[in-house]
């Protein structure tokens, strides 16, 4: 009886702690700037709660034994020779199995809802669940279309309708955006943490990618697949703005003649060449700064 109460109390404590951690997990992320981010954070919260439960459960069990089952200083006796317990062993085989089946199902649903596309050769998954952008007043058609060109070490975004190129990614809010990702040399990674999306870009291929920005603001796009010396500097700004501002920006940019954009890799490399006693090793030379209609 006393044991049951203790166990019950522990279970309640674990549950509360887990739910609390699950709630807290929302604060660990950048802003939820895309429809996909909302789905993501919900799934992550569930995983955090379950993970906390398992982790604290095991840790508390160990700590409990450290406190209550220490051998005395001169106690050389052995514990009870318990070699196993079939029922317990089955229980702790089946329970994790059920948990991961649940996790896999939930993850699959979330992934399906995100509907990111990505490489879809050979066969693609059937779209079973309504995509996330269908939920609220988000416009799926027409999509914003952007071609993304990556090279060592620069991003260039091209808007085919107006034939505009830019080193800053502009997107209208609440409208599904479609990207065609390309690389000129090595593998790069298209990654915007505020949107919780990422896709490696494989050279000599065009990869389709989609997501839905829902929060106006300025975010950071980072290269996520290591691409050599100036990898860390391969970043760009992302501006999500109202459709009106977006159109105004596009029209204005279309009128500007292309100029070379500032490029951190190129300028760092130039500085390094001037220093005679450079401590570094020989590196792949950065591609020249891109010529674009618009840069920040």
């Amino acid at each position: 009886m006393k044991r049951a109460i203790t166990l019950g109390a522990i279970a309640i404590f674990l549950t509360i702690a887990s739910i609390w951690m699950g709630k807290a997990s929302y604060s660990w992320f950048p802003p939820q700037a895309s429809a996909e981010a909302i789905l993501y954070d919900d799934l992550f919260s569930i995983l955090t709660a379950i993970g906390t439960f398992i982790f604290l459960g095991v840790t508390l069990a160990i700590v409990f034994n450290i406190i209550f089952y220490r051998a005395g200083r001169y106690d050389t006796s052995d514990g009870l020779p318990i070699e196993g317990n079939i029922r317990l062993e089955i229980l702790w085989t089946v329970t994790p199995l059920l948990i991961v089946i649940g996790l896999a199902t939930a993850s699959y649903q979330t992934y399906d809802k995100m509907n990111l596309h990505g490489p879809t050769e050979i066969a693609s998954l059937p779209q079973v669940i309504e995509p996330a952008y269908a939920d609220t007043g988000i416009i799926a058609e027409p999509m914003t279309n952007v071609e993304v060109d990556s090279k060592q070490w620069a991003w260039v975004f091209r808007y085919p309708e107006k034939n505009v190129t830019s080193t800053e990614l502009h997107l209208p809010v609440n409208q599904r955006a479609h990207f065609q990702l390309r690389s000129q040399d090595v593998i790069h990674g298209f990654y915007i943490p505020a949107f919780r999306v990422k896709q490696d870009i494989i050279p000599a291929k065009t990869i389709d990618f989609e997501f839905t920005p829902i929060l106006e603001g300025k975010y950071r796009l980072r290269d996520s697949q290591y691409s050599g010396t100036y990898f860390a500097a391969m970043q760009a700004d992302v501006v999500v703005e109202s459709p009106e501002d977006y159109q105004a920006w596009l029209t204005k940019a279309a009128k500007q003649t292309p100029t070379p954009a500032p490029n951190q890799a190129a300028s760092e490399y130039a500085r390094r060449q001037q220093k005679e006693d450079s401590a570094g090793w020989k590196t792949v030379v950065p591609a020249p700064a891109p010529m674009v209609n618009y840069h920040s």
């Binding site: 095991v58 034994n65 514990g79 062993e89 085989t93 199995l97």
Partner: peptide, 24 residues
């Protein structure tokens, strides 16, 4: 995800080994 099942078997077995022992 399936790998967590045999891993869990081991983890719980170790906790079971410690459980109620004479810990040094």
């Amino acid at each position: 995800m399936l790998i967590s099942v045999p891993s869990g078997i081991k983890v719980f077995a170790w906790v079971g080994t410690i459980w109620g022992g004479k810990l040094r």
